[in-house]
């Protein structure tokens, strides 16, 4: 997309789009943060400053439990689905088999099934046949089904151009398959795995429909947010959202400082790009 004649002009045009996208994505976050400090949360402008939301949060509320549950759900789903997806993509791209079309169809199918159906079907399975109440583990598994296809497609985006002869070369030099994976394949594809991890975490952290039906009364962030819409928005909700954002942005700021001083590379090597 180097459409402009000079590289710096191109950088400015593209950079403008990126800045606009960032503003577009972050304005609601700003709104939430401002509203969490405001006395009137529904129409917070002009702002009358107060700590009420955060104080109420400290006293302990359902939002603590909801946040914890959502985090466990997100991490569990991300770990399991990324692992399964890595195995799946590697197998599909590396080996020839006459069963491949069928298995590939099975792997891709969850994408086309709506969240609501996944939630309801698991509910039927749990409630009618297994007769277990809503719990976090079955919610994790239901979310993994949805997240698996996402993770698989994202990993495949980078992996389909992978040069498998590198693996062969490693085998020639005597490395077993497992060692080959950890010392050759993994260092080359870790961005894809990280991308899949983040995407699946976000997907399950925010998921309303699947988790709603499989969890029953166990609260998660989306379901308490949904509930608050019916019973009135509490300032604590905004407060915890603002805190989560602040924590993550702090991590990013730390990463930025480390990157700037050159301490950590995260895969970047000086002079490798243009």
């Amino acid at each position: 997309m180097d459409f402009m004649s000079s590289k710096s002009a191109n950088r400015i045009v593209l950079g403008a789009i990126v800045v606009l996208a960032y503003i577009f994505l972050y304005v609601p976050i700003l709104h939430i943060t401002l509203a969490s400090f405001s006395r009137d949360i529904v129409w917070p402008y002009p702002i009358r400053f107060t700590w009420n939301g955060y104080l109420a949060l400290m006293k302990g509320s359902i939002y603590h439990e909801a946040f914890l549950n959502s985090t466990i759900l997100g991490l569990g789903t991300a770990v399991i689905s990324t692992t399964l997806a890595t195995i799946a993509v590697l197998s599909i791209l590396k080996y020839r088999s006459r069963y491949k079309p069928l298995i590939l169809f099975l792997f891709l199918a969850p994408l086309f099934v709506a969240d609501v159906l996944l939630g309801i079907s698991t509910l039927i399975l749990n409630g009618l046949f297994l007769e277990i109440p809503g719990n976090l583990l079955s919610a994790i598994f239901a979310n993994v089904v949805r997240a698996f296809t996402y993770a698989m497609l994202i990993i495949a985006t980078q992996l389909f151009r992978y040069n498998w002869k590198l693996d062969d070369a490693a085998m020639v030099f005597g490395a077993g398959p497992i060692r080959t994976f950890f010392e050759i394949t993994l260092p080359n594809i870790w961005p894809a795995l990280l991308g899949a991890f983040i995407v699946t975490f976000i997907l399950s952290f925010n998921n309303l429909d699947i988790s709603f039906y499989t969890l029953g009364a166990v609260p998660t962030m989306p379901s308490v947010a949904w509930g608050s819409l019916r019973f009135g928005i509490k300032p604590e909700l905004y407060a915890i959202a603002a805190l989560v954002n602040a924590a993550v942005l702090l991590c990013l700021a730390v990463m930025f400082v480390l990157m700037r001083s050159g301490t950590v590379g995260f895969g970047y090597k000086e002079g490798r790009d243009d």
Binding site: Y26, N206, V244
Partner: peptide
């Protein structure tokens, strides 16, 4: 990052 806030919010 904005996605950690959840769709409803």
């Amino acid at each position: 990052v904005p996605f950690l806030t959840g769709i409803v919010l």
